[in-house]
Structure formats: structure tokens, C-alpha cells
């Protein structure tokens, strides 16, 4: 259960970036606020909802529990943030507008890295034909739908029931996306079901989850050996603070105020280390850069604000098992 909530919170987090209700009620939980102010290193941070007294959350599932050593990475407040704006997922002028604008750039990175890794024809209109891809924190399906159009067999999961409903309705209207399997569950739930995917993708989620390490372990566990893991998030730099929080939330009002907390941002070094502990070796990284004149996003070497990482799950399944078990033990001890 805890795992589930973890996953959900991650997803919800990514979504919450865009949610407008955050503006009105950025941090309903005082404990949450004070904790988030501590700029601790990720492995030391603990925003687990269990320890959080504010469990009067609309999403009861988000309560903490541990299953098979996979802790829930959900954060109930983040889940609530995203539930409140779920209706606006597909409004290109709504709170998710920045995500809509950024999406083609994110997909083009995924397209090029996965085509190379799985040796697919980059000129094919459906290069992912037959690949099983998991979208963790799928929200309204902004990423799941393009992946399905590119030929993938897509599973989209999200901790917010409303998101899943919106995603299902939206995907059903187009035959090219109606095959997407959307379920309201967490990555930890899927780990328990022993599900495996060729690629596990989670965009703009990790900065919203309670425990990034647990989250990455779940993602790693869901990828087949030799499979791909793709994560995008925001760097913890002063520039990121200035652009994603001060500018985007307070000056330009692109994002609801309270969408992001600077202290929860993850640096590329931290992400690489966490993924390593989850048996995923990062192969490629790219930054997203916004051009305010043209209003376009593009890929660049500059990873100081938004960035995306592509990693490969280590192929030795034995070492993977032992490592996972070992890590689980350490988690229990701590």
C-alpha cells in the first residue's frame, strides 16, 4: 500500500506542477512545509506520509504501508493537488499548458534514445511497434497517447483516480490510442504483481514523490533486464529556483503557486546515484531549454533546469535480485 501511495504521489507530483489549486492552497499541511524547507540530501530525506500527521487526505490509499520491502513513494498532499485540477488535463490553454508545450521535446528524446537502444528505424511512423512501455504518473495521458501512436503497447498508471478517468475517456475517442491500459495504482502495486516492461518512463514525477530512492527502485524493478528507464525532472540549482518557481509560478503564472518545492528537486548527480542503487545505469542525459521569443522548447546540453535521463537496467538478473534484497534489508534497518 505504501508503495502504491508512493507511486501515486510521484505521479501526482508531476501533475501538481501544473495544477491551479495549488495556487489557492499551496501547503495545507504545516508539517509538510517545515520539512520541505530542509534541503537535505535525497537519501536522507524522508517525507513519508506515514510519519506525516496530516493524513486527513482525500486519498485514503495514500496511507503508508510497506509491501515486499517496496515502500510507497506517494505523498498524499501532492496527490490532492493534482486531483483538484484533473479536469483541465487536455485544455491546451489550461494549467497543463507548459506540459503540452514541452511534451513534443520530451517525446523526441524518448524516441531517439529508445530507437537507438532497441535498434528501431527512426524514420518509421511507429518505431515502438510491440514494445511494452509503462508510463508512471501518466496523469491525463499526455505522454501515454503519443507513445501509443508510436506503436507501443502502453500501460499508464496514476495514483489519482480522476486522472485515470480523464485519461481513459480521452484515449477512447481516438482508435490509435484506445488500446492504452490505464489503471489507478502505484508502481509498487505493479512490482508486487511482478510485472515487467521493456521501458519504464516517469516524467516530471520524481520531484513530487516522498522517497525518490524507493521510487527509483520500483521503476528499476519494473524494467526487464536490458530494458530502459527514462526519468525527467528539475535540477536543484539557483537557476531552477528562479525559473521554475519564481518566474513560472509567481511572475508568469504558468504554474499554480506551490507546484514545486525547490528542496525536493533532484540534481543529475543524485539521480544517477539513486538509479545506480536501483540497478539502472544512466547512459544519456539532456536538458530542456525554453526560448521565450519563439515559445518553443528544445533539447540542449544545458541540464541546469529541466532535464531528462535515459538509463539501462542491468542485464544480470541474479545480481539484480541480490541487490534488491540487500537494499530492502538496509531500508528496513533504517
Amino acid at each position: 500500500m505504501a508503495m502504491r501511495s508512493f507511486l501515486r504521489s510521484r505521479r501526482s507530483l508531476s501533475r501538481s506542477l501544473l495544477q491551479p489549486d495549488l495556487l489557492r492552497n499551496p501547503n495545507p499541511n504545516p508539517n509538510y512545509v517545515s520539512r520541505s524547507l530542509i534541503p537535505a540530501l535525497l537519501p536522507l530525506r524522508s517525507y513519508s506520509p506515514a510519519s506525516d500527521p496530516t493524513t486527513k487526505n482525500p486519498i485514503r490509499d495514500a496511507a503508508t504501508d510497506e509491501i515486499n520491502g517496496f515502500k510507497s513513494s506517494l505523498n498524499p498532499i501532492e496527490v490532492a493537488k493534482f486531483a483538484a485540477i484533473a479536469e483541465t488535463w487536455w485544455d491546451p490553454e489550461g494549467p497543463f499548458k507548459p506540459l503540452h508545450l514541452m511534451n513534443p521535446t520530451r517525446v523526441s528524446f524518448i524516441r531517439s534514445t529508445l530507437c537507438r537502444h532497441f535498434r528501431r528505424d527512426p524514420y518509421s511512423p511507429r518505431p515502438f511497434e510491440g514494445l511494452k512501455i509503462l508510463d508512471v504518473g501518466c496523469g491525463g495521458g499526455i505522454l501515454s497517447e503519443p507513445l501509443a501512436r508510436l506503436g507501443a503497447v502502453v500501460t499508464g498508471i496514476d495514483a489519482v483516480e480522476k486522472n485515470i478517468n480523464i485519461a481513459r475517456i480521452h484515449a477512447a475517442s481516438d482508435p490509435s490510442t484506445s488500446s492504452i491500459d490505464y489503471t489507478c495504482m502505484t508502481a509498487e502495486d505493479l512490482v508486487r504483481e511482478n510485472q515487467k516492461f521493456d521501458a519504464v518512463i516517469s516524467l516530471e514525477v520524481i520531484e513530487h514523490v516522498a522517497e525518490p530512492l524507493d521510487f527509483c527502485k520500483s521503476l528499476g524493478a519494473l524494467a526487464v533486464p536490458g530494458g530502459a528507464v527514462v526519468i525527467s525532472t528539475i535540477n536543484r540549482t539557483m537557476r531552477a529556483y528562479a525559473t521554475t518557481i519564481v518566474a513560472a509560478e509567481y511572475i508568469l503564472n504558468w504554474l499554480p503557486k506551490g507546484t514545486h518545492e525547490w528542496s525536493k528537486f533532484v540534481t543529475p548527480e543524485e539521480l544517477t546515484l539513486i538509479l545506480q542503487r536501483a540497478s539502472v545505469s544512466v547512459q544519456e542525459m539532456a536538458g530542456f531549454v525554453y526560448n521565450p521569443l519563439t515559445g518553443n522548447w528544445s533539447l540542449s546540453d544545458d541540464i541546469s533546469v529541466n532535464y531528462i535521463a535515459f538509463g539501462i537496467k542491468e542485464s544480470s538478473s541474479d545480481s539484480e535480485k541480490t541487490r534488491t534484497v540487500a537494499e530492502q534489508k538496509t531500508d528496513f534497518v533504517s
Binding site: N103, P104, V107, R111, P125, E145, P146, R149, L150
Partner: peptide, 8 residues
């Protein structure tokens, strides 16, 4: 370009 990034 839209097709290449799976856009509708």
C-alpha cells in the same frame, strides 16, 4: 514532425 513525436 507531429507524427514523429506521436502527436494527434
Amino acid at each position: 514532425e507531429g507524427v514523429s513525436v506521436g502527436a494527434d
